[in-house]
Write a protein that binds this DNA or RNA. Sequence first.
DNA 1: TCATCTGTAATAATTGTTGTTACAGTACAA
DNA 2: TTGTACTGTAACAACAATTATTACAGATGA
Lengths: 136, 136
Amino acid sequence: MNNRRFAVSVHILILLQQAQGSYVSSSYLAGSININPVLVRKELINLRKHGFVQAREGKNGGAALAKPAADIRLADVYHAVREKNILGENRTEPNPKCPVGKQINGHLEEVYHSAEQALVRQLESETLASFSKRFT
Amino acid sequence: MNNRRFAVSVHILILLQQAQGSYVSSSYLAGSININPVLVRKELINLRKHGFVQAREGKNGGAALAKPAADIRLADVYHAVREKNILGENRTEPNPKCPVGKQINGHLEEVYHSAEQALVRQLESETLASFSKRFT
DNA sequence: TCATCTGTAATAATTGTTGTTACAGTACAA
DNA sequence: TTGTACTGTAACAACAATTATTACAGATGA
């Protein structure tokens, strides 16, 4: 990720879902999340790129959901903010002269992949609609 | 985590497993992993705390596995390096005056928990022994 | 008693993340 | 047609987290 982005994105989407189609400004969103509006706008651009939200510029502009909350799974949001495997990209180059070092990243990658798959499958079970029902 | 620690710990354990009980120095381990020996020693201290390895000080000292590789699951290693939920600790305080902000961390935590559970269950299926079979 | 190792602290360097400022461009509304 | 309230975006500053480095006391074996 970075992981924070997942929380921010979900937070944004929940707020938009509650706005029921009316356009919400990045400052308002930022106020609820308690982060900088520019970060929100960046996140919105990403969410838009993935088809979750639409934006309107200019006065009374803002963002709104682009599709029904029932059609947005938390797993989809996860994919939208995912940058690398959650268990960690292998940033270092282990020693290629060592038989273990030479192979380990490849083997770890397989483990990482299946572990992340399991996590994603779990996130597939919850949609923005079902998740937002928790908010009373 | 931080995620890197998981890879480092697994790497260490694989090397120790291959050493078949003989003691391996932190410099040697660091050389294969290609990181600083002090980091390795810190990681070894953690692995020891969790009962995976034993250490011997002084000349010809080093580390060795403290239990059979078959009794160490990757999930156990994960727990040993885990610091917070992998999907992210909610570092920021959302606006408590916002009905969504006030509740979201609690609700996210539940989602995070079940997602991580799924990931861990997957890691339970692989032991250090089975994983090390991949190395030829 | 020397050499080699761990354990540990303190601190520096590096990288990653988040916040801030600034401003061009869009759209509405008076 | 001009002011106001927004987005989109870049550039950069501040801060946090991670990793590396240096240093050294203490253990152990030869």
